[in-house]
Design a protein around this nucleic acid. Structure first.
Lengths: 350, 350
DNA sequence: AGCGTTCCAGAAATCGATTTCATCCGCAAG
DNA sequence: CTTGCGGATGAAATCGATTTCTGGAACGCT
């Protein structure tokens, strides 16, 4: 494959000149034309590895998400990508599979591939960002918090949990269960908190037997729902903490509905997060729509701003590289987006 | 951030020795210990950019897919990743968004980042792989064909289309429509062909008014289904060519079912591809299950084999680099996997 | 005409690793 | 006691670009 030297040789100029042509630095029109022609015939593309080794950065950002199969994150990915493309950046997606170790590996790759920045939906709240921060690479957290002082974009989870529950209370349900996410995941804790606030004020029985913890996946929703229905004094409605567990809960309900007497007709369901695709429900469902696209867009914008800022800083020749914990110029910003309650309906559209 | 030189200085050895320690080449135990200690205190990680510039390859593979929001591809991604991880490779995902230009950009990145290989689900059958093939980077095509002589993993689409249609015929339906995918997409053409074969033999009316082309997305399924139901002599069943259009079609049917007289009760539906998550259907649905995980696994295995082969070749010091069209040692292999018919049922599980 | 800018272009240093090559050492065989 | 071999180690070349440094030509100004 062609290198800059071969192009230079063919065009009869120095490699430096070839580089200048490809970087829009002043070169006489005549030589520029020669270079372009030579590059054309050799099908030359600059080697990004060499370039980024020298320039110490690339035009690629990493988006690290915990579950590629969750539509929440794919929608997020989509939004990030759209924004990044517009800014001339390519996005590579890394699936951490909720595994801090895999996540760490991808963060390592991002650093040592000199990627321009990282958007991270943390697998846990113990994600270790010290390495990437020490190298002064911009990082933005989405959806979940980290212990680090970085830009982040979050959803206002507690009100979302509250809104979902209030909607059920308003609809007349009195015994409202909650299928919460894993303990220790901040989004899960807060949504559960919102439910707790609402049931305390409005409905009977915040009793812990109505509170179940799932794994944020379909099977977790299934088993939690089964347990709830098997209670001697079962709930008449349920708030589910995320989309996938919502699917699981609905599956169980759909089966129960067909088993006469297994569940009261008109069981109430509220789900925090949008259902994937059309989910034809056996019951009316209240959904708290989460602004996922906006989440991604905001994260991308924050990251792009940081990257620009960093580039400007380098151009000005700053010296603060040495101090590992040195603060960034602009303090970390946090964007919080609110969910939006969508009235109960039978059919969610894709 | 620490470089190999700083580690060398701290340990009192040469950079070469540090490199040897990190590459498991013979180094005396004493020096190795010194190096490791130094690396530890400096929190040194080898810079991948420099490494891959020198070694001319990396331990990262690219998976380029046309639609990150389609569960078909995310499942594929999952399978590829699992296999790659086991082989010590990291996977970065690139969303081409069905846009040949974006696809080309990602292929470029893969090449010039010296990635170990590429698994490509082509956006179109015009995808230009010449650059990556010229650089002798292993590529494997999945799901769709390319014009190039490379390893590929496909689904046996025509029989899948046929099986879906036959199932409806067997269930007694007589006027079976088809919502096909875009013209020119090989998977779409073949599935439609399978439907054509079946209706010719078994059912009435292969008339072109029963054949609609969609865009493989939810809205395409919706509009095609609406058109079919609006026919003066509407079908009594439909074969849908992919999962997302299946969702769209089901949405429309669900609405129609609630409108008395709009559609015959017991309208037949067969979908090629698994429905995303639990899709609670208003009708019994026949699904042709596609072995997506196996598709991904097979693709990853083929790629990993090629990468190993290439590495072995380099080690032996082959010379064929010059010839751009030079054939690979082992001829291209194509793996074809069959779909599997799943009898009609009401509720698909996630 | 002389001097100082400005601008273009090439030579060479640089990024951070790997790898070749050469050296040096110890140890065994003759 | 010498020769030879093999293993450990360092010096230096290398990967392919970018960037600094420097020389030289062209141009303007007095």
């Amino acid at each position: 494959m062609a290198t800059i030297y071969e192009v230079a040789a063919l065009a009869g100029v120095s490699p430096a000149t070839v580089s200048r042509v490809f970087n829009d630095r002043p070169v006489s029109a005549a030589k520029a034309a020669l270079v372009r022609a030579a590059a054309e015939t050799l099908r030359f593309t600059p080697n990004r590895t060499a370039r980024s080794l020298r320039k110490q950065n690339s035009e690629v950002i990493a988006l690290v998400i915990p579950d590629i199969e969750n539509p929440f994150f794919t929608t997020l990915a989509r939004a990030v990508e759209d924004r990044a493309q517009a800014a001339g950046l390519s996005v590579v997606l890394c699936n951490s599979d909720d595994d801090p170790e895999k996540e760490a590996r991808y963060l390592d790759i991002a650093i040592s591939e000199n990627m321009a920045g990282v958007i991270l939906a943390p697998a846990s709240d113990h994600s270790d960002l010290s390495a990437v921060i020490a190298r002064r690479r911009p990082v933005v957290a989405v959806d979940r918090t980290t212990g680090f002082d970085i830009d982040s974009v979050m959803i206002d989870n507690r009100p979302a949990g509250r809104a979902a529950t209030d909607a059920l209370i308003a609809a007349g349900f009195t015994r409202i269960a909650c299928i919460a996410g894993p303990l220790g995941i901040v989004t899960a804790d807060e949504r559960r908190g919102g439910w707790g606030d609402a049931v305390q004020d409005g409905a009977e029985g915040a009793g812990s037997e109505l509170l179940r913890f799932g794994n944020y996946r379909v099977d977790g929703g299934r088993s939690a729902m089964l347990e709830l229905l098997a209670l001697s004094d079962p709930p008449d409605a349920v708030v589910v903490s995320n989309n996938l567990m919502g699917v699981g809960a609905l599956e169980v309900l759909a089966e129960a509905v067909r088993t006469p007497g297994a569940v009261a007709p008109g069981f109430g369901v509220a789900i925090i997060g949008d259902l994937p695709f059309a989910t034809f429900a056996p019951a009316a469902i209240t959904v708290v729509h989460l602004p996922v696209r906006e989440l991604g867009t905001a994260a991308a914008d924050l990251l792009i701003a940081r990257i620009a800022e960093r580039a400007a800083g380098e151009r000005a020749g700053s010296d603060v590289d040495a101090a590992p914990g040195a603060g960034t110029r602009i303090p970390a910003r946090t964007v919080v987006l609110a969910g939006e309650i969508v009235p109960a309906r039978i059919l969610a559209d894709g």
